[in-house]
């Protein structure tokens, strides 16, 4: 099923001769730099409420990962249903482990 979808897609792409430019990848890069800078600045400045800083760090990291996986690893493109299922499965088990470690280890 997925293979068929991808081969059809490959077919149309071949006929259109679509060659994407580097622009959107440079935009993703600048976006990543800005998110990273916000995270570092919040910690370097100190004095910011720790609980707020932790949430800010997590939001910046998750945003950056979403954008990079979407554009650089092409997860937002067509024919990536199974890869998305694999990654959501992986992140689901990973976050279960992390939540267990954070809330139950020292209980």
């Amino acid at each position: 099923m997925t293979a068929n979808q991808q081969s059809n897609e490959g077919h149309t792409v071949k006929h259109r001769h679509r060659t994407e430019g580097p622009e959107k990848h440079i935009i993703v890069f600048i976006f990543s730099i800005i998110l990273t800078a916000i995270a570092f600045a919040a910690v370097a400045a100190g004095g910011v409420n720790p609980a707020f800083t932790i949430i800010l760090l997590l939001v910046m990291a998750i945003l950056q990962v979403f954008v990079q996986m979407g554009y650089w690893m092409h997860l937002k493109d067509k024919g990536h249903l199974m890869p998305i299922v694999f990654m959501i499965g992986g992140f689901f088990v990973a976050s279960t482990c992390i939540i267990m470690a954070l809330f139950w280890v020292w209980w």
Partner: peptide, 28 residues
């Protein structure tokens, strides 16, 4: 080629679990 890419995504899902357990240990 398509199978290689799809199989590699399955591997990356497993890598996410691997690093998830290491992050969990570190956070604990």
């Amino acid at each position: 080629g398509r199978n290689k890419v799809l199989g590699f995504w399955l591997f990356l899902g497993g890598e996410a679990v691997l690093f998830g357990t290491l992050f969990a240990t570190f956070l604990a």
